[in-house]
Amino acid sequence: MSEVANIPVVSALGGASFDGFARVREIGPLGMITLRAKPEVKGLSAAIKAVTGTAMPKQRRIEVKGEKAAGWMSPDEYLLVLPYTDVKAALATLAEKLADQHHLAVDVSDARAVFRIEGDRASEVLSKLAPADLAALEKGELRRTRIAQVAGAFWQDETGFTVVCFRSVAGYVMGALSHSAQPGSELF
Protein backbone atom coordinates (compact mmCIF):
# COMPACT_ATOMS: atom_id res chain seq x y z
CA MET A 1 0.00 0.00 0.00
CA SER A 2 1.84 3.07 -1.16
CA GLU A 3 -0.92 5.56 -0.31
CA VAL A 4 -1.08 6.89 3.24
CA ALA A 5 -3.96 5.08 4.90
CA ASN A 6 -6.21 6.51 7.55
CA ILE A 7 -4.49 5.01 10.58
CA PRO A 8 -6.47 5.29 13.81
CA VAL A 9 -4.50 7.48 16.20
CA VAL A 10 -4.21 6.05 19.69
CA SER A 11 -3.29 8.03 22.78
CA ALA A 12 -0.99 6.37 25.31
CA LEU A 13 -3.77 5.11 27.56
CA GLY A 14 -6.77 5.16 25.24
CA GLY A 15 -8.54 7.86 27.24
CA ALA A 16 -8.32 6.33 30.71
CA SER A 17 -10.14 8.13 33.51
CA PHE A 18 -10.57 8.03 37.28
CA ASP A 19 -13.30 9.59 39.38
CA GLY A 20 -12.08 10.50 42.84
CA PHE A 21 -12.50 13.71 44.79
CA ALA A 22 -11.42 15.24 41.50
CA ARG A 23 -11.82 13.80 38.01
CA VAL A 24 -8.68 12.65 36.21
CA ARG A 25 -8.79 11.74 32.54
CA GLU A 26 -6.34 11.22 29.77
CA ILE A 27 -7.12 13.37 26.77
CA GLY A 28 -5.53 13.61 23.39
CA PRO A 29 -3.56 12.97 21.48
CA LEU A 30 -3.09 16.68 21.00
CA GLY A 31 -0.95 18.16 18.28
CA MET A 32 2.22 19.50 19.84
CA ILE A 33 5.21 21.20 18.31
CA THR A 34 8.46 22.03 20.03
CA LEU A 35 9.66 25.27 18.53
CA ARG A 36 13.14 26.39 19.44
CA ALA A 37 14.10 29.92 18.55
CA LYS A 38 15.27 33.00 20.36
CA PRO A 39 12.49 35.52 21.07
CA GLU A 40 14.21 38.21 19.05
CA VAL A 41 14.12 36.11 15.88
CA LYS A 42 12.51 38.08 13.09
CA GLY A 43 9.06 36.82 12.23
CA LEU A 44 8.81 34.52 15.28
CA SER A 45 5.82 36.29 16.71
CA ALA A 46 4.04 36.21 13.36
CA ALA A 47 4.90 32.54 12.84
CA ILE A 48 3.46 31.59 16.24
CA LYS A 49 0.37 33.66 15.56
CA ALA A 50 -0.06 31.99 12.17
CA VAL A 51 -0.02 28.56 13.78
CA THR A 52 -1.87 29.08 17.07
CA GLY A 53 -3.63 32.39 16.59
CA THR A 54 -2.19 33.61 19.86
CA ALA A 55 0.31 36.18 20.92
CA MET A 56 3.83 35.12 21.65
CA PRO A 57 3.91 33.97 25.30
CA LYS A 58 6.07 35.83 27.77
CA GLN A 59 8.23 34.14 30.40
CA ARG A 60 6.38 31.16 32.01
CA ARG A 61 3.09 32.07 30.33
CA ILE A 62 0.83 30.11 28.05
CA GLU A 63 -1.47 31.93 25.64
CA VAL A 64 -4.60 29.91 25.00
CA LYS A 65 -7.14 30.44 22.26
CA GLY A 66 -9.77 27.74 21.90
CA GLU A 67 -8.09 24.46 21.05
CA LYS A 68 -4.78 26.13 20.37
CA ALA A 69 -2.12 27.47 22.64
CA ALA A 70 1.44 28.70 22.71
CA GLY A 71 3.51 28.19 25.86
CA TRP A 72 6.88 29.52 27.03
CA MET A 73 9.09 26.55 27.88
CA SER A 74 12.49 28.23 28.21
CA PRO A 75 14.18 31.37 26.87
CA ASP A 76 14.52 29.67 23.48
CA GLU A 77 11.77 27.08 23.44
CA TYR A 78 8.01 27.25 22.86
CA LEU A 79 5.32 24.62 23.02
CA LEU A 80 2.65 24.99 20.37
CA VAL A 81 -0.58 23.11 21.02
CA LEU A 82 -3.09 22.50 18.24
CA PRO A 83 -5.42 19.82 16.88
CA TYR A 84 -3.48 16.64 16.11
CA THR A 85 -4.35 16.71 12.42
CA ASP A 86 -3.11 20.28 11.98
CA VAL A 87 0.50 19.54 12.84
CA LYS A 88 1.78 18.78 9.37
CA ALA A 89 0.42 22.01 7.94
CA ALA A 90 1.63 23.97 10.95
CA LEU A 91 5.17 22.65 10.52
CA ALA A 92 5.04 23.74 6.88
CA THR A 93 3.85 27.19 7.92
CA LEU A 94 6.66 27.52 10.45
CA ALA A 95 9.24 26.33 7.92
CA GLU A 96 8.02 28.93 5.48
CA LYS A 97 7.76 31.83 7.91
CA LEU A 98 11.10 31.12 9.58
CA ALA A 99 12.89 29.92 6.44
CA ASP A 100 15.88 32.19 6.84
CA GLN A 101 16.06 32.08 10.60
CA HIS A 102 17.92 29.66 12.82
CA HIS A 103 15.22 27.61 14.51
CA LEU A 104 14.06 24.07 15.13
CA ALA A 105 10.44 22.93 14.86
CA VAL A 106 9.59 19.29 15.51
CA ASP A 107 6.42 17.31 15.93
CA VAL A 108 6.26 15.95 19.46
CA SER A 109 2.54 15.09 19.47
CA ASP A 110 3.24 11.39 19.89
CA ALA A 111 5.96 11.87 22.47
CA ARG A 112 3.51 13.21 25.02
CA ALA A 113 0.56 12.19 27.11
CA VAL A 114 -1.94 14.79 28.26
CA PHE A 115 -4.31 14.70 31.24
CA ARG A 116 -7.07 16.87 32.60
CA ILE A 117 -7.72 17.19 36.32
CA GLU A 118 -11.07 18.75 37.00
CA GLY A 119 -13.20 19.68 39.98
CA ASP A 120 -13.08 22.12 42.87
CA ARG A 121 -10.24 20.21 44.49
CA ALA A 122 -8.19 19.62 41.33
CA SER A 123 -5.23 21.51 42.75
CA GLU A 124 -5.08 19.13 45.74
CA VAL A 125 -4.31 16.24 43.39
CA LEU A 126 -1.29 18.05 41.97
CA SER A 127 -0.22 19.33 45.41
CA LYS A 128 0.54 15.78 46.38
CA LEU A 129 2.91 15.20 43.49
CA ALA A 130 4.53 18.45 42.41
CA PRO A 131 6.86 20.59 44.56
CA ALA A 132 5.22 23.75 43.21
CA ASP A 133 3.33 26.40 45.14
CA LEU A 134 -0.04 26.02 43.43
CA ALA A 135 -1.65 28.80 45.42
CA ALA A 136 0.84 31.14 43.81
CA LEU A 137 0.26 29.71 40.32
CA GLU A 138 -1.39 32.32 38.17
CA LYS A 139 -4.03 31.58 35.59
CA GLY A 140 -2.23 31.26 32.29
CA GLU A 141 1.04 30.30 33.92
CA LEU A 142 2.83 27.29 32.49
CA ARG A 143 4.73 25.48 35.25
CA ARG A 144 7.33 22.92 34.34
CA THR A 145 8.25 20.79 37.32
CA ARG A 146 8.42 17.29 38.70
CA ILE A 147 5.31 15.15 38.99
CA ALA A 148 6.28 12.52 41.57
CA GLN A 149 9.32 10.97 39.87
CA VAL A 150 8.96 12.27 36.30
CA ALA A 151 9.12 15.57 34.46
CA GLY A 152 5.83 17.27 33.70
CA ALA A 153 4.20 20.58 32.90
CA PHE A 154 0.79 21.98 33.71
CA TRP A 155 -1.37 25.04 33.46
CA GLN A 156 -4.66 26.00 35.03
CA ASP A 157 -7.92 27.28 33.59
CA GLU A 158 -11.43 27.84 34.96
CA THR A 159 -12.31 24.15 35.18
CA GLY A 160 -9.04 22.56 36.17
CA PHE A 161 -5.53 21.71 35.08
CA THR A 162 -4.03 20.40 31.86
CA VAL A 163 -1.04 18.18 32.62
CA VAL A 164 1.56 17.11 30.06
CA CYS A 165 4.15 14.37 30.51
CA PHE A 166 6.15 11.96 28.36
CA ARG A 167 4.20 9.23 26.65
CA SER A 168 6.21 6.27 27.98
CA VAL A 169 5.35 7.20 31.59
CA ALA A 170 1.67 7.91 30.95
CA GLY A 171 0.68 4.84 32.96
CA TYR A 172 2.83 5.92 35.87
CA VAL A 173 1.41 9.45 35.87
CA MET A 174 -2.15 8.15 35.60
CA GLY A 175 -1.44 5.86 38.56
CA ALA A 176 0.03 8.69 40.61
CA LEU A 177 -2.83 11.08 39.79
CA SER A 178 -5.43 8.43 40.60
CA HIS A 179 -3.75 7.57 43.90
CA SER A 180 -3.74 11.25 44.78
CA ALA A 181 -7.41 11.73 43.90
CA GLN A 182 -8.66 8.84 46.07
CA PRO A 183 -11.86 9.72 47.88
CA GLY A 184 -11.16 10.35 51.55
CA SER A 185 -7.75 11.85 50.92
CA GLU A 186 -8.88 15.45 50.43
CA LEU A 187 -6.24 17.75 51.85
CA PHE A 188 -8.27 20.65 53.19
Binding site: R60, W72, P75, P131
Partner: peptide
Protein backbone atom coordinates in the same frame (compact mmCIF):
# COMPACT_ATOMS: atom_id res chain seq x y z
CA UNK B 1 17.72 33.01 36.41
CA UNK B 2 16.12 31.96 33.12
CA UNK B 3 12.54 31.21 34.09
CA UNK B 4 12.36 32.84 37.54
CA UNK B 5 11.11 29.70 39.26
CA UNK B 6 12.29 29.30 42.84
CA UNK B 7 13.13 25.67 42.31
CA UNK B 8 13.70 23.20 45.11
CA UNK B 9 16.64 20.87 44.91
CA UNK B 10 14.64 17.94 43.55
CA UNK B 11 13.86 19.98 40.43
CA UNK B 12 17.55 20.61 39.86
Amino acid sequence: PYCGVKAEETEL
